[in-house]
């Protein structure tokens, strides 16, 4: 499947694609950084809440749901390349009627996503005719991560969670980009139990006892009733990290993002540690 779709792509290499549609936020992040923003992207209104950085250019056309890209609209946009993830593989035959499709496997491959993100960045750079920009983005990201490493030296053990509601929590670990950033900053994740292949685990609040007095970041967005209810919960109040005053709020970072998401996460950590 992948093999056959590469043939038309290689033929195009000389001219390189300019009207590119992205069916994934993470890939769109990298494209914007490379200076070739997508002409169309799925679910553009939610970008500002979840991806935040880099800002989405206003002229990007909204293609609707990520699970059901609007084919008619896609056809009317006349793209010369569609970039996507393996999760849309089932509609590849339909997408290929419109333009060549390149799919980037990054997450849930049973390994850390970071190397796949680097590969995807290079590959995107090559296909968009922006190889130098791609290398520059990789170097810039490495540099930002190194800078953050110095800044976050004093953080110690830490954990990142999001609140599903006041009783149920999602915590992040191996398999996701947050853990990858921890590793590069040489920070230790306080959550040592297992996570799923996407790099998170759904747990109850009682499980947070395992974190001890590590530093805890809870990420936006937060359901509106949670912050009001936490102070009244004896369970939350008796958590060692709450008693030690090690709890901090953090702005949203795209969990399935690429290099811009990783550096954003590192920068937010660095800002929090000052």
């Amino acid at each position: 499947m992948l093999g056959c779709s590469c043939v038309p792509l290689r033929a195009q290499e000389a001219t390189s694609a300019s009207r590119v549609v992205s069916l994934d936020y993470g890939l769109a992040q990298t494209m914007i950084e490379l200076g070739v923003p997508p002409v169309g992207l799925v679910d553009t209104p939610a970008w500002a809440d979840w991806t935040v950085e880099p800002p989405l250019p206003a002229k990007v056309v909204n293609l609707g749901s990520a699970h059901e890209v609007n084919m008619e609209l896609l056809q009317l946009l006349r793209p010369d390349l569609i970039v996507s993830t393996p999760y849309l593989e089932w509609v590849r035959p339909q997408l290929e009627q419109i333009a060549p499709v390149k799919s980037f496997p990054i997450h849930a491959l049973g390994s850390s996503p970071f190397p796949h993100i680097i590969d995807a960045t290079r590959e995107l750079g090559r296909m968009l005719g922006r190889t130098t920009e791609a290398e520059a983005l990789i170097d810039r990201s490495e540099m930002e991560l190194r800078a953050a490493q110095t800044a976050t030296r004093h953080l110690g053990k830490l954990a990142v969670i999001t609140f599903i509601d006041e009783r149920n929590i999602r915590i992040y670990g191996p398999g996701g980009i947050f853990q990858d950033v921890f590793d590069r900053l040489e920070l230790q994740n306080a959550w040592t139990r297992s996570t799923n292949e996407w790099g998170f685990a759904d747990i109850g609040m009682a499980d947070l006892f395992d974190l001890g007095d590590a530093r805890l970041f809870y990420m936006d967005p937060i359901p509106p009733d949670v912050l009001a209810k936490l102070p009244g919960s004896p369970l939350w109040q008796s958590m060692p990290f709450v008693q030690a005053g090690h709890v901090q709020r953090m702005a949203s970072v795209l969990m399935f993002g690429t290099l811009p998401a990783a550096t954003r996460f590192a920068r937010l950590l660095a800002e929090a540690s000052t």
Binding site: I164, R167, N168, A206, W236
Partner: peptide, 14 residues
């Protein structure tokens, strides 16, 4: 949160 609710979680905080 709606899915977790739909799944019926008995986790309690107090």
């Amino acid at each position: 949160g709606l899915f977790v609710w739909g799944g019926g979680s008995l986790n309690q905080n107090d």
